[in-house]
Amino acid sequence: MTDLKERIIQSSLELFEKHGYHGVSINQIVEHCGASKGGFYHYFHSKDELLYVIHDTFITYVLEKANQAKQTYNNPTEKLQAIIESFVKVFDLYKPHISVFYQESTYLKPDYEELIKKKRDQFKQNIFEVLQEGQDKGEFRSILPVEITGMAVLGMVNWTYKWYRKNGEKDIEEISHVFVDLILHSVLTGETLQQDRYTDFFLQTKMNS
């Protein structure tokens, strides 16, 4: 991403968070980042497209990480662990983007909203597929309904945006380990929990190392 495009995005994030989407004009954005209207329109056709790019940035990141986890690891426990860690860390990497998303997502144009929804659905489906694979292979508890469990994971992690602070007592790495421990202890069978190859995923092991 070019410096100017990044400056435009960062300025719009600051202004949207402070004044709301409709409270900010393109003129204010370019003035804030020291650009010109020509520079703005070189990268974005409209303010609507800019809002879409802000939303798309972090959704694309978590989707790519989930796809990468599915391709990298052979077993569902490792896949789920990797997906959870990258999912939690997005709230540190893209906190302003996510704040604007929750504040201003209602203003997305229908075409852009559909593109975002498609990626969100793909990410959700990735989690469902890994959970189903884990049950099929006997690593995850089969008594847990896949869709309810998947939605519980999404809801639990998504709520991070409400309370996470970069200067908090725990950094995002430590927080991601807590989520992994909570979720894996919930979904793994007792037999899987005892496997040595997964012990590094749990807090007790990290505390003792």
Rank of each mutant, 00 (worst) to 15 (best):
P96Y: 00
T77M: 10
P110K: 07
T77G: 07
V100E: 01
F91D: 02
K137T: 09
E173A: 08
D136W: 02
S99C: 06
I143Q: 11
S186Q: 14
Q103A: 03
P76R: 12
E139H: 11
F91A: 05
F87K: 06
T149A: 15
P96E: 03
Y112I: 00
L184R: 09
D121R: 14
A82L: 04
Y61D: 12
E129I: 11
D92T: 02
M156V: 14
G168N: 10
K170H: 07
D48R: 09
K166C: 01
E113F: 13
N74K: 15
L108C: 08
Y61M: 08
K117I: 00
E139C: 00
V130S: 09
T60V: 01
I148D: 00
M156T: 15
Y107G: 06
E85C: 06
V178L: 09
L184P: 05
V178F: 13
P145N: 10
D92I: 02
D111G: 00
I83H: 02
Y52A: 14
D121P: 07
Y112D: 04
K166A: 12
K118Y: 13
E133Y: 01
N67M: 14
I116P: 05
V178K: 05
E85A: 09
R165A: 05
E147D: 15
I54D: 02
N67L: 12
K79P: 01
R141C: 06
T149S: 12
K137V: 06
F101R: 00
K170T: 00
I59W: 03
D136A: 10
Q122K: 15
G168Q: 05
I59G: 10
L108T: 03
I172L: 02
V146R: 13
N75E: 04
D171Q: 01
S99I: 06
D171G: 08
F123P: 11
M156K: 15
D56C: 11
F123V: 01
F128I: 06
L108V: 05
S99V: 09
V90N: 12
Q68A: 10
K118P: 04
F140M: 02
E129P: 12
S142V: 02
